[in-house]
Design a protein around this nucleic acid. Sequence first.
RNA 1: GCUCCCGUAGUCUAGUCCGGUCAAGGAUAUCGGGCCUUCGACCCGACAACGCGGGUUCGAAUCCCGCCGGGAGCACCA
Length: 500
Amino acid sequence: MGGPETVAARPVRAADELPELPEATKGKVVLRLAPFPSGALHIGNARMVFLNDYYRRRYDGRLLLVFDDTVGSEEKRVDSELFGVIQEDLRRCGVDVDGVLYKSDRLATHYQWAERVIALGATYVCVCPSELLQANRRAGVACPERTETIEETQALWKRMLSGEFAPGEAVLRLKTDLQGPDPAFRDRVLFRISDLDHPRVGHRWRVWPLLEFSWAVDDIELGITHVLRGKDLVMEDRMERHVWDLLGIRGPPFLHWGLLRVREAKISKSKSYVEVKSGVYDGWADPRTWSLASLVRRGITVDSMRSFTMSFGLSLADIEVPAETLYAENRTRIDPIARRRMFAADPVTLQVEGFPADLISVTLPNHPERQELGDRTLPLSGSFLLARSDVVAHAGETIRLKDLANVELPATIPDSGPVAGTFAGRENRRVPRLQWIPEGHSVSVDLLDLQGQHLVGVAEAALRDAAPGEVLQFERFGFVRTEDDWTPRSSPVRVCYGHP
RNA sequence: GCUCCCGUAGUCUAGUCCGGUCAAGGAUAUCGGGCCUUCGACCCGACAACGCGGGUUCGAAUCCCGCCGGGAGCACCA
């Protein structure tokens, strides 16, 4: 025992496939997903979700959702709202679980195991203040209680359970090598006392296991065959193995992956929590959370998220990937199906002098390559709405109203009121093409951007044809998705920005 | 400081276990060209990498040693 011999993934495999799980038998694999219910699943959690799901499918195995809701701490509180949110996240991501369990239901079992290791003399009840405990750990010095007998430990443990100690006054610690080279591994705490109110079980328990011990118990009790977890938890492997070695148990192998960060996503679970709870953020699907739900809201398909995540495999390197990589993945999926619409943010009216009076409408395809997606007809009058930034950027130039006509723009653009342009023919010229909306036939649009700001703009009336949750492309602007709770009858049309 | 993990092009990744088929494959980005009436898509092309130093070997991205760099842990959080 000792060294954290992370099980190496078998590289024997076909192209595009992840390594085999060691000692895995089809139909017999049991995996577990163990989120802490303090926030929605976000892009950083995606590996945990999709890798476990991948192997469950590959081996026709079972996947348990086990909420890691030991009581937490003042800073990390369990919030019962998240039990439902997380399950909904998984459902939305097409991840089926074969059972939902709660750590907080399993304390009696954890206690039984505690008694087994206590009876082995492998533990002691330590009453040092935590600062002293930590100082001794660093120094490799034993606390006085370390020499207590099994009987004394058993008695103290009973007193912990019966409520004779206040939080912080006593903990159950595992005896490891105090001279061991890794200070992090010396005599770790197995159980501590907490008075925090638990949203599911209230104050029923005061003595709570720490994550490592609870998993040493539950990975065995639940018959988990492979533990797939982030590499931030490698020391927990050692702890679990240490406990199993004590009891002569052969536990499951562990596989890890490194930390995945998306460059643009500065994820702070605690900040998100505060902002969502206070209403500053628009729920757990606010784009600023980078939650999986928020990505769905932005029109990023689950399939895109899955292949994005899986492309990193089981690499142990900590990586930072630009969001563009995810967007590129998504574009391959949505570009062929997204209907095109024209949108103008902060619109300005352009009145085109000399616009042909007989040109009363134009019919444009909904998609440049796929005729089967249909078309729409825009009525024309010579008066158009364009994005102010476009008009300003091309002042004094000849531009082309995309798919329609060329227009000379004046050299100066007034701060308010209409802009007067001059018709310059309909032939297809290689000049900047700007999207436009016929005035009098527009719908207003409320676009939620990635900073949580609402952008106001206009779009062509055909945008009303969109279904809630439809992914569209605003030409020269980017992909958007209509909000789920928007209805075609209501105004403005509400969309969430996706990506370029 | 101690422990562990990681180090292939700008960013990811395949290959490393079992050395030769790797004068290193793919994706993405960037640049150039083509095409479609989008700043989007598609097609073609280009650029670009084995952290450094020793060693073993006929042969090293792959094995060994040393170093350097990055990350994580050293919580009565998960």
